[in-house]
């Protein structure tokens, strides 16, 4: 006799748990973000949609460069559509600041010497 209410109570709990994420996603997905509003204003709405599709592509690029897959998702989630596009389309060309100063100094010196050597050969000095 006691089992029935307990079972229905459990069912209700499970159901509401299952519906909870749906409800929140629904609520926040409904409004138009200011970002999308700007894109609509500029009639670049389709570009914006495209940029959103590039999110997965950008995340894959980051993973290929050694980033943990879960972290990669969080990282691309914080990028703007314009930034996403840059990563998805020309990641190889983007500067990646590293700052290896010691190696730097030596390389620069070598480059200057190479330059000077070139100059000397060019003008026939020091032969």
């Amino acid at each position: 006799m006691n089992k029935k209410p307990l079972r229905s109570y459990l069912m209700a709990c499970l159901l509401s748990l299952a519906l909870l994420p749906l409800a929140t996603v629904h609520a926040s997905a409904d409004l138009i973000s200011s970002q999308e509003a700007l894109a609509i204003e500029r009639s670049s709405h389709t570009e914006q949609v495209q940029a959103w599709l590039q999110r997965d592509e950008a995340a894959a690029e980051l993973v290929a460069l050694g980033v943990d897959p879960t972290l990669a998702q969080a990282r691309v989630a914080a990028l703007s559509p314009q930034e996403l596009e840059a990563i998805a389309e020309r990641l190889d060309e983007l500067p990646a600041g590293a700052g290896v100063i010691e190696v730097l100094g030596i390389t620069f010196l070598v480059l200057i010497i190479l330059d000077l050597v070139g100059v000397i050969n060019l003008f026939g000095l020091g032969r």
């Binding site: 980051l62 460069l65 914080a78 840059a86 990646a96 600041g97």
Partner: peptide, 23 residues
């Protein structure tokens, strides 16, 4: 470091610095 560094590029992209500030 986890948020902005790219291990196999040995560096950090400008756009990821902007994104991390937002986060």
């Amino acid at each position: 470091v986890d948020r902005v560094y790219l291990p196999d590029r040995g560096g950090t992209l400008q756009v990821e610095l902007l994104a991390a500030a937002r986060s």
